[in-house]
Each structure stands twice: as C-alpha cells, then as structure tokens.
Amino acid sequence: MSAISRDDVAHLARLAHLEMSEAELETMASELAVIVDSIAVVSEAAGDDVPATSHPIPLTNVFREDVVGQTLTQEEALLNAPDSEDGRFKVPAILDGE
C-alpha cells in the first residue's frame, strides 16, 4: 500500500497546486514513504463494525436564522488583494494562450 513514487507525488502536487522541482519530488517521495509506512497501521486497528467519528463532540442541527448581518465594504473585501480592477479580484488567464 505504501511505496510512494515520484510520479505519485507529482500527481498529488498537481492536485494540491504545489509546483515542485524534480529534487523536491524525489525528497518528498522518500519522506512520504517512511511516514506512510508508519501510519498504515491504522487500517488494521478497527474492524468493519466500528463506526467512524468525524467530530469529536457529537452535535446536530446547529443552524442560523435567515437574517442578514453585516457585510464587508468593497474596500475591505479588496484590502489584501494581490491585484484588483473595477471592484473585483483580478487573476491571470485561466486557459493557456489560445
């Protein structure tokens, strides 16, 4: 189950939007292999009859009433924007060239 390859890491890095150099991919692959080996034990710990716990303290039905609250101004919204134009966040092209 473990044995994480450089290609595996490259795929994960693409999913996670982390550009990585060849050297980084190699290092990460070997580090992850060790870590994953040591944590793979979890798959043997619990049988099928054990339910999963996603929240440590079980709560249900926490809701908000449908009442408008305070909003940010456009200036506040754009305060930390790396780039903006016309009151909107500006981002580079989504597609490459034509």
């Binding site: 908000r64 449908d66 408008v68 940010l72 919204a77 016309d86 909107r88």
Partner: peptide, 25 residues
Amino acid sequence: KTKMFSDAPNAFGDVPNTNVTPVDL
C-alpha cells in the same frame, strides 16, 4: 434572504464584492 453558510445578503446584481462577509471570501 441570506447565503447558505453566511449571513451576507443573497441578492442579484449588486455592486461587486459588497454582498460578502469574511466567510464568503
């Protein structure tokens, strides 16, 4: 009246980035 997970107004066509709370950004 408000959004799914924040209390910003759910309104169409307003000035850009004004119907937002920290949650929506």
